Simulated assay, not measured.
Amino acid sequence: MPLDPQLFLAFLVAAWVLILTPGPDMLFVIGQTLAGGASRGWAALLGIGTGALVHIALAASGVAALVAASPALFEALRLAGACYLLWLAFGALRAAWRGGATLRPAAPARAAFRDGFITNLTNPKVILFFLAFLPQFVDPARAPAWLQMLLLGPLVPLMGVPAYGLLIAGANRAAARLSTFSRWLDGLAGLIFLALGLRLLVGGRPG
């Protein structure tokens, strides 16, 4: 068996704690669900998960370590991710200001997938997370570290599906009940994206 059973059990417990702890991904999925319904929420979650898989592959291959060690590249990714989130916030807030019909029919799920993928992929803190988190549960005596990281890493987004499913369902029900206030839902989604963008913009590099 390439994984240590005790380390694997510890990984599952730690992963659940991380999944259930509110964070940027959770807020992003809520914002997308409020703005476009459950289909956009699921699409955003799929985009985030796909971005996470790319980060996991980069961490396992050692590329992520090179990115983390390059201040210029790290900053470029951080600024790109922040600007993209701020652009999403601008679009949602503009829709709220204009009012009118809800955005739900007009915003395809593929846009939410794209947004989730790009915001996750351009968040350098996700790189640091997988670089710091996965190696703690790797036993070099069992199998190559890259193989163990590729086996463990995808479990994080997969384990989050049930929890995020409940979150999406709840946000979608709330949005459906407030459908007559669609401009306020757009505004709330815009504020969520704005907060995430500013958090990434001013957060800087973790110490």
Rank of each mutant, 00 (worst) to 15 (best):
F181E: 15
P206H: 09
L53E: 13
A82D: 06
L194T: 02
A76G: 09
K125G: 02
I19S: 03
A57M: 10
L200E: 06
P206D: 09
I19A: 05
G204L: 11
G207V: 05
P157G: 00
G204T: 11
A69M: 05
G203D: 10
G170H: 07
D186V: 05
Y164S: 14
P71W: 12
G187C: 10
A44T: 15
G100W: 10
L194A: 15
M149W: 03
T180P: 03
L166E: 01
G204I: 11
A169R: 09
G187M: 07
R205L: 12
P22Q: 02
G190A: 06
A112N: 09
P124W: 05
S39G: 08
I19E: 03
G204H: 09
L191W: 09
L200Q: 10
V63Y: 07
R199W: 14
R114F: 15
I168Y: 04
G190K: 04
A52N: 07
I30M: 13
M26K: 13
H55P: 14
A163K: 02
L155W: 01
A132F: 02
F117H: 04
G81Q: 00
F8S: 14
V138G: 02
L77H: 05
I30Q: 00
A68T: 06
A80D: 08
A95W: 07
F193E: 02
L147Q: 09
R205I: 12
R199P: 03
E75R: 13
A65G: 15
L151M: 13
F193A: 14
R142D: 04
T33E: 13
D25G: 11
V63Q: 05
D25S: 13
L58V: 03
G187R: 06
L178V: 08
A38M: 08
R205N: 04
W184Q: 11
P206S: 08
S61L: 05
V202A: 12
F74G: 06
G187L: 08
W184E: 13
P105S: 14
L73R: 11
A109G: 10
A72Q: 15
V161C: 00
P162T: 04
V126F: 00
L18D: 14
A169V: 06
V54R: 01
P5N: 11
L152N: 13
Q148F: 07
V54S: 03
R104G: 07
L9R: 14
E75K: 11
L93F: 09
D115W: 05
R205D: 08
G165E: 11
D186P: 05
A89T: 04
L103R: 02
D186S: 07
H55L: 13
H55A: 11
G153F: 02
F133A: 07
P5Y: 08
A68E: 08
P135N: 09
P154D: 09
I19M: 01
F8H: 10
M159Q: 06
I48F: 12
G99Y: 04
H55S: 07
T180Y: 03
G37N: 01
L79Y: 14
A76F: 10
L200K: 12
R110C: 14
